[in-house]
Design a protein around this nucleic acid. Sequence first.
DNA 1: CGGGGACTTGAATCAGGTCAACCCCAGTGG
DNA 2: CCACTGGGGTTGACCTGATTCAAGTCCCCG
Lengths: 230, 230
Amino acid sequence: MARSAAAREVAFAPAAAVAPLEPPAAREDLAETLAGLGSELRFAAGQEIFGQGEAAEHVYRVLEGATRSYRLAGDGRRQITDFHFPGDVIGLEAGLRHSRTGEAIGPVRLQAVRRRALSRLAETDVGFAAQLWRSTVREHLRSQDHILVLGRQGARERVAGFLLALAARLDAPEVLDLPMSRQDIADYLGLTIHTVSRTFSHLQESGAVRAQGARRIRLADPDALAGLIE
Amino acid sequence: MARSAAAREVAFAPAAAVAPLEPPAAREDLAETLAGLGSELRFAAGQEIFGQGEAAEHVYRVLEGATRSYRLAGDGRRQITDFHFPGDVIGLEAGLRHSRTGEAIGPVRLQAVRRRALSRLAETDVGFAAQLWRSTVREHLRSQDHILVLGRQGARERVAGFLLALAARLDAPEVLDLPMSRQDIADYLGLTIHTVSRTFSHLQESGAVRAQGARRIRLADPDALAGLIE
DNA sequence: CGGGGACTTGAATCAGGTCAACCCCAGTGG
DNA sequence: CCACTGGGGTTGACCTGATTCAAGTCCCCG
């Protein structure tokens, strides 16, 4: 998404260059606001944090580790909708129930905040309500990007884009430590584990990437990766 | 989505059967609230209502006709993210700019509401802020469904699911009048126009569907269609 | 050091895309 | 009234990229 982000820069133009359309109020982040609230929790690798269909009683802020959110189709097919990292807020719902399942990828440290507390805050504090809304909108924009990827890109583009997006998100300009398995990546990108693996190999052969074990990827030539997209 | 909706019924269980987790306050619809505001507009077939990257100065409520929202990839590839029908609110953004382009499919009648008016309302009326949020969440849930379709379903499933969803949305239990072209459907489902056309033919051969011209589809056997999904 | 899950790789297969021809029909103008 | 035109849609033949099936190899953990 380094590239996708660059594309968006063009499409939406730097904010600074545009006359402000509204006061930059309530611009702080939801995660910040949550920082003081709630209690700390730990989950081991693979444990479920919340389940699709369960009552949504908490919201979680990721403190350490990584998580995945997914939906299951009627048969067993799994579609991972997103990965989450420290600073992200997960499990936020407007309805009564969780629309997806959240799981720890590795060991995870979380901060759990009662949904009730949020509701009450939102009812009195307009700025907080705006934060909730913005947070959902941001998630929605990420989903739209995801739709574009799944609807229109080939395997090369998907994997290259995934690596760049992850690097941007983890602030890892050089070496990327993937917390998730190949199967996770496949279920996120709408591919099979085989195609993902093969594509990694191709990227390595082409010199765009150098692997040090399956989970440690050096982005040797980010421009080459970016060139594969579109 | 008649089927997808049925699936959700299972996953999330009927709300009535569950102890209420929060008071059913502010449950009314955003579109209702907007009803009084703003002025009426008309667009001809194919006209752009708002463009990706433009300042988001209005929100629109569809009164009559159908619209499509899409994003363009770097090259020309188009991904339609959603279709909209009377009662839907389109062009709602939290940021300054539109993240997608909105176009009239056929002649459309809209009601335009200034974004400023919404912002002001949201700042004073907590219930309205909640409506904004819920509306975005609903959109986001639709996107998640879309992601599942694009990531995990084959052409048959996509087209069958599309027809059922459209029928449910238009309250057309029998005969479906498609406002959009085959190309639109293809760009929504992440397929080519050829595959969509072929798939329609297959559905017709199998008796699930009967076509009366390209745009008028009789859902002869909805259960058969539902059976194709998953 | 051994076992087993995670990962890789090859060969065969297939779904969907590409290329190309054609049909259908509404609108236009002679 | 009819021939022409052009856009939308359908259909066939072929091709290709991703899946499937089937062995392997690697390496992490006990």
